[in-house]
Nucleic acid binder design. Structure first.
Lengths: 133, 133
DNA sequence: TAATCATAGATATCATTTGTCTACCATATC
DNA sequence: GATATGGTAGACAAATGATATCTATGATTA
């Protein structure tokens, strides 16, 4: 039971974009070498972030990725769900009982975690890091 | 990002034991057919629960599984961790930075969920089910 | 038109989960 | 103690999902 490495890459990528260059375009190349991943693989992750409306890509020379105007609102949960999808920790249950109490307990516990992740903006972490230096 | 089916089986098994026969021995056979799993597979799951000190097994005729005396204290988290292990959602991080803020945010959000799961006893759910009938 | 950069598809690899099969061990009862 | 009943453990096998890589292609700029 773990978040995927892709989610890890996505979070670091977004933090990097916010932290270092919120305005400029940054190439996948640069993002990839910073995290020691291949560009094509990271590109697939960035595509998901783009489809979720957090970044936009520009092809061609001097192209790359840029944060969308709403970048200051982006939460951890936004990023995680862009990569992991909308799945719940526990979306099946024995006999597919829609009233399964076990499922209800777990889902409601999970909601507590999601609330936390929803309230944590990536920009706040970036500011913390900037403050610490 | 999901809890495994094994965790699902474990929770339902424990609920069944608490609900139906907290005192008697119940064979894996019965538990397995109830959940539509093979006995050997469910047996492996029960072995983990036994190692975690929640149930005990008795071999031989009229044997089976029985709850341990502390059964009223058993929480959802106890069962989940007996199966999933002690892993965290996010125990690696880029460059293995022990001070990674991203990791700290996620781990602290996860703690909120674990607190909830720790506070939910399996016996409470059993009582709810009994009351609803 | 050439250089730069992102994108999508096909494919490969690997780890984990989910199981099955089998032989084996423990206990109760006759 | 033989036998039926019940749990245990190991060696597999299959399915799934994550993690990539390679290649060809499309878009943009200089």
């Amino acid at each position: 039971m773990k978040y995927s490495k892709a989610t890890n890459y996505a979070l670091h990528t977004m933090l990097y974009l916010v932290n270092v260059t919120p305005e400029k375009h940054v190439g996948v190349q640069q993002l990839a070498t910073h995290q020691d991943v291949s560009t094509t693989y990271l590109s697939k992750i960035l595509t998901k972030l783009a489809k979720a409306g957090m970044v936009e890509s520009v092809s061609g020379a001097n192209g790359g990725y840029k944060l969308k105007p709403n970048w200051e609102d982006i939460s951890f949960l936004d990023i995680i769900q862009a990569i992991e999808g909308p799945t719940s920790l526990f979306d099946y249950c024995l006999h597919h009982d829609p009233n399964c109490l076990i499922q209800k307990v777990i889902v409601s516990a999970e909601e507590k975690m999601l609330d936390e992740l929803r309230n944590q903006k990536i920009v706040d972490i970036a500011k913390q890091m900037a403050g610490a230096q």
